[in-house]
Amino acid sequence: MATVELTFSALPAHVRTARLVATAIARRTGVEESLLDEVRLAVGEACSRAVEAHRAHCPGEPIRIELRDDSGRFEVTVSDQAPSDEITQDEPFDLGMLSDSFMSGFGIAVIAGLADDVEVFPSPKGTDIRMSWPANGRLTSL
């Protein structure tokens, strides 16, 4: 099992860096090229959500990402330290309902639509979003 960890300040400018790192590690771990766009978007969504949560609750605390090659899966966990107040919706079709606060729940909806496997662990001390994709494990042999 190979692991890469990344921590970054809760600044929007760092989200692009985080998703580029995640995409690079995914490629080296053996995630199929056709899935890399999904990795990039899902990790970006998780990091954007974490940045927004930190800016609202704890802007001085860093956000942590763990990227692992785990038994044929590329697994990413994005962890924040902000109390969870996530909004979730299933049918976002009514334009009148799409307020800014409603849109903040879109991130997890997008992740759920992209990642092969997603688990969200909200708690008063922060939220962990764990997602994974199939990989052939090249990183461990490098």
């Binding site: 978007l41 969504e45 954007s48 334009l95 800014d100 997008v110």
Partner: peptide, 16 residues
């Protein structure tokens, strides 16, 4: 090249 839910929110805001 890349669009996330923040961008979707901006487009929806513009539509409104």
């Amino acid at each position: 090249d890349f669009l996330d839910s923040t961008g979707l929110g901006v487009l929806v805001g513009g539509l409104k």
